[in-house]
């Protein structure tokens, strides 16, 4: 599988497919679907310092070509994660990216340090962009993003900042994250959406707003990844949003994503990450492209014609 391998963030990934944080929980259910060692990485469900029950039901709604969720960071908390879950993840044979969130930057920094001295973690992902919890999303604003990331980089693991496609100036926010010490960017989280129950005339979700994911999000995520890649050549990007097919994965890579996150696609179709990996390999072989890595960002450099020329 050397064709798919790539090194980013100081970590060697077996391939570009990364399980995005949340839709597949801690990935343990998926472990019996296929060999996790063939995937690039597993990003855990976002963990918080203390356990969180999450939001009231209903937590899911349909969207045209997508889904809305209002899960609200349901997780067992840092201690239970470290003691009960992380040891099981180590047996999966893939790279482990631990996603975390906090109430404020101080707490975020504390969690980052705790995780930083825990064995068996390859990278951290700071979730600055969950639309389903109380408080503002730090990723909407460059100043906050800088302070939160800065607070989390007094430890040795590479840190991905998870951004929001909802932010007005995502390039400015990304630059702030990099100034704060982020090693890379995950682009991005769900975007805010809602549905109204026409029988009651009330919002479907108790918190009114949920997060839109799935195919409907693809063009939005591609635009953000493209803009960030244009502004920030060389910064590792995990492109996430609406990838449910080989074509979408290729687009994401060509727009500028080094690694490609798959969330909703794997949630509704648990076998998808493995199919995408196999289909990508076949596609590259068919095109006589020796390494996946060479197609990354090719939309910025003259397209596949240039890839073949190299």
């Amino acid at each position: 599988m050397a064709r798919l391998e790539l090194g980013r963030l100081g970590v060697a990934f077996a391939g570009p497919v990364v399980l995005a944080s949340g839709p597949v929980g801690f990935g343990l259910e998926l472990a019996s679907v296929g060999d996790m060692g063939r995937l690039g990485a597993l990003t855990t469900k976002t963990i918080t310092r203390l356990p969180r029950a999450g939001n009231p039901a209903p937590r899911l709604a349909d969207a045209p070509a997508g889904t809305l969720n209002s899960v609200g960071l349901t997780n067992p908390g840092l201690e239970a994660f470290r003691e009960r879950i992380l040891p099981k993840l180590q047996d999966l044979g893939t790279r482990i990216i631990v996603s975390f969130a906090a109430a404020d930057e101080e707490e975020a920094g504390w969690i980052a340090q705790e995780l930083g001295r825990t064995e068996g973690i390859d990278a951290l992902e700071l979730n600055l962009s969950c639309p389903n919890v109380e408080g503002t999303r730090p990723a909407l604003e460059a100043g906050m993003t800088f302070r939160w990331v800065r607070a989390c980089t007094d430890q040795t693991l590479p840190l991905l900042a998870k951004l929001s496609p909802d932010s007005q100036d995502i390039v400015g926010v990304a630059e702030a994250a990099l100034r704060g010490g982020a090693a890379g960017l995950t682009v991005g989280n769900t975007i805010q959406g809602t549905r109204i129950d026409w029988n009651t005339g009330l919002p479907v979700f108790a918190r009114v707003f949920g997060g839109l994911s799935g195919p409907a999000l693809l063009p939005v995520a591609l635009a953000k990844v493209f803009a960030l890649r244009a502004a920030l050549p060389g910064v590792p990007i995990v492109g996430t949003g609406g990838v449910t097919s080989l074509g979408a994965m290729l687009e994401m890579a060509m727009a500028g994503a080094d690694l490609v996150g798959v969330g909703t696609g794997a949630m509704v179709d648990p076998d998808l990450p493995w199919r995408l990996t196999a289909e990508l390999e076949t596609w590259l072989v068919g095109r006589e492209i020796a390494r996946y890595e060479t197609i990354i960002s090719c939309a910025h450099r003259g397209g596949l014609a240039v890839v073949h020329g190299t």
Partner: peptide
């Protein structure tokens, strides 16, 4: 009955208090 996405205990979408 609750709305579901994964059906396998992964996504927490079907969780009720």
């Amino acid at each position: 009955e609750e709305r579901m996405a994964c059906g396998i205990g992964a996504c927490q979408g079907c969780s009720v208090l």
